[in-house]
Write a protein that binds this DNA or RNA. Structure first.
Ligand SMILES: [Mn+2]
Ligand SMILES: [Mn+2]
Ligand SMILES: [Zn+2]
Ligand SMILES: [Zn+2]
Lengths: 149, 149
DNA sequence: CTGATAATGAAAATCATTTTCATTAAAAAT
DNA sequence: ATTTTTAATGAAAATGATTTTCATTATCAG
């Protein structure tokens, strides 16, 4: 019986029961800056919550994504990765090392980027009648360490 | 015994033999503007080349990607999609409809985008010692048709 | 034309993710 | 506090994309 957590209210309308796996997964994601995969989350929780199932991790991640509390990414790796989303965390994008898989957050040029994105969205709406709801910018390359090899 | 195709020379160093599957797959991709999946390519070729294997399609796509003759994309769908790459085809990005999966090429704002990307790459190289080699911009949303539903 | 072997294709294996279904536990009702 | 309802869970099986294995085939150098 998990405590009345501050996150609980954000689930109203999406879900009826507040459970330990949901709390544990959200807590873990909120406390790391990493971009974790479902299996990594599962492994990390096994210590504090033996008996948790990988299936539940996947289901919970889907749920959290739908409520907008986490973001899901498909970098060019096999598995999806997830990160906690919060209002005070700035809009950002990623550098992905194609050699070791390292992921770096960056939010430099957010203003200029947003300007270009907005302009593009408006233009694309007119030209293609396409309603832009989300965008994604990624840089692929080599991290400092991997450039040495 | 496939003819001495104009593409053949581009494989020097990567591959020793020029085969029918390689020619057929490259030809198909060069003639469509669509972003095809491995299975779609396999299905399309079955007519003109019965007996072709899906395995070979995958292997050939990997090869073509390594030689830079095609590009591979992982939109948020289950399967990877591929498009022909050529010098005269302009650098472009994609609008992806999250409802029906439709993919639209666009190259508007290429100049401004490139300017921002270059500036970012330079900055990121300094700040994070990250060597940018490639970038990816995608817009997700609803196509004209799907906005009506 | 012939031999060496790169490339192929069928089948099996892998890997991430989803589905199924019997069991458990959150929380509403008593 | 206890019972009841049923949403949520977790083990196991299923799925779907992609990769690996390996015996066979076909390219192409000699
Ligand atoms: Mn991030
Ligand atoms: Mn394209
Ligand atoms: Zn690296
Ligand atoms: Zn659509």
């Amino acid at each position: 019986m998990p405590g009345q957590h501050r996150w609980r209210k954000r689930f109203a309308g999406h879900v009826c029961r507040w459970t330990m796996p949901r709390e544990a997964i959200l807590k873990l994601l909120s406390q790391t800056t990493k971009h974790l995969s479902a299996k990594e989350i599962y492994s990390a929780l096994l210590r504090s919550y033996p008996g948790i199932g990988l299936t539940t991790v996947y289901r919970t991640l889907d749920l959290l994504e739908k409520t907008g509390m986490i973001k899901k990414f498909n970098f060019r790796q096999g598995e999806s990765r997830y990160e906690f989303a919060s209002e005070n965390k700035p809009h950002h994008h990623h550098l992905i090392c194609t050699s070791c898989g390292k992921i770096i957050d960056y939010s430099d040029f957010a203003d200029e980027e947003l300007e270009l994105v907005d302009k593009s969205a408006k233009h694309l709406a007119e030209k293609y009648k396409f309603l832009v709801q989300d965008h994604n910018i990624e840089f692929y390359g080599l991290c400092q360490q991997c450039q040495k090899d």
